[in-house]
């Protein structure tokens, strides 16, 4: 197995009385796609958000356990959350381009990070859009509004926006949920390229997508991590009856 990039230890998380994650322990290997899947309400999105500390400001939540990035607890006092989010990028189900042009969308993060040199920014725009498999489609219209792009292009723009900051980890929450099969295929191809350099955690929009892209797969059911295995094993010969029932469509 690859090196462990993220280690989740005995993570329990609740919103008020509702337990969203129950004593979850799992490793997320570097340079691989780890798929987190299961029925709605299983805790997948919560898990992703916790890796990015996106739940910090939600009232009435409780957390125990640890989330380690490269061996360091990201919830330890003194953690620089801004730096964490630069290292751990997130792409959501609905593409939300910022108002402005395609170029401005990609430059936004690097500019916030203090990069002003036009040549350096240009290099980042080209690299990010190329990595997100969008460059060829938009290179002649970088200064047109991002809102004019198709859904699939917008989603890849959001991916490029994350990649502009050169994160180490990419968290993707159903990044292809509203897309047609061709756009979905492009993004999946992109992920295969990206995993050479990044650690990817993906909530898939279907079991078929989970099976297609997973190097490792984790099945969550009602806040519990039921099973965690290399994808090729989990989808052909799951160990747990509940995983079997879910992926063969017997429930859920």
């Amino acid at each position: 197995m690859n090196d462990i990039k993220i280690r989740i230890e005995n993570l329990t998380y609740s919103y008020g009385d509702k337990v969203a994650l129950r004593d979850v322990t799992m490793d997320i290997p570097a340079n691989a796609i780890t798929v987190v899947f299961g029925p709605a309400g299983g805790g997948k999105t919560t898990l992703l958000r916790l890796i990015n500390r996106l739940n910090d400001l939600i009232e009435g939540t409780r957390m125990s356990g640890r989330v380690l990035l490269d061996g360091k607890d990201i919830y330890a006092p003194g953690t620089d959350v801004i730096d964490l989010r630069r290292r751990v990028g997130m792409v959501f189900a609905l593409p939300l381009p910022l108002p402005g042009t395609i170029r401005e969308n990609v430059e936004y993060g690097p500019r916030l990070a203090g990069i002003r040199d036009p040549a350096r920014l240009e290099e980042i725009v080209v690299r990010s859009l190329t990595q997100a498999a969008l460059w060829d489609e938009v290179k002649d219209r970088l200064d047109t509004p991002a809102s004019a792009l198709s859904g699939g292009q917008q989603q890849r723009l959001c991916l490029a926006r994350s990649l502009a900051l050169e994160p180490e980890v990419l968290l993707l929450d159903e990044p292809t949920s509203g897309l047609d099969p061709i756009s979905t295929g492009r993004i999946e191809e992109t992920l295969f390229e990206l995993k050479q350099r990044y650690t990817i955690v993906l909530v898939p929009h279907s079991i078929q997508q989970a099976a297609r892209v997973a190097d490792y797969a984790a099945f969550f059911l009602m806040g519990e991590l039921v099973e965690w295995q290399p994808g090729d094993l989990l989808f052909t010969n799951p160990r747990d009856r509940r995983t079997e029932d879910y992926i063969t469509g017997r429930f859920g």
């Binding site: 099976a211 799951p238 992926i247 063969t248």
Partner: peptide, 9 residues
């Protein structure tokens, strides 16, 4: 159907 697990086997 893209069957999985025991269905596929």
């Amino acid at each position: 159907q893209q069957p999985m697990a025991s269905d596929l086997r």
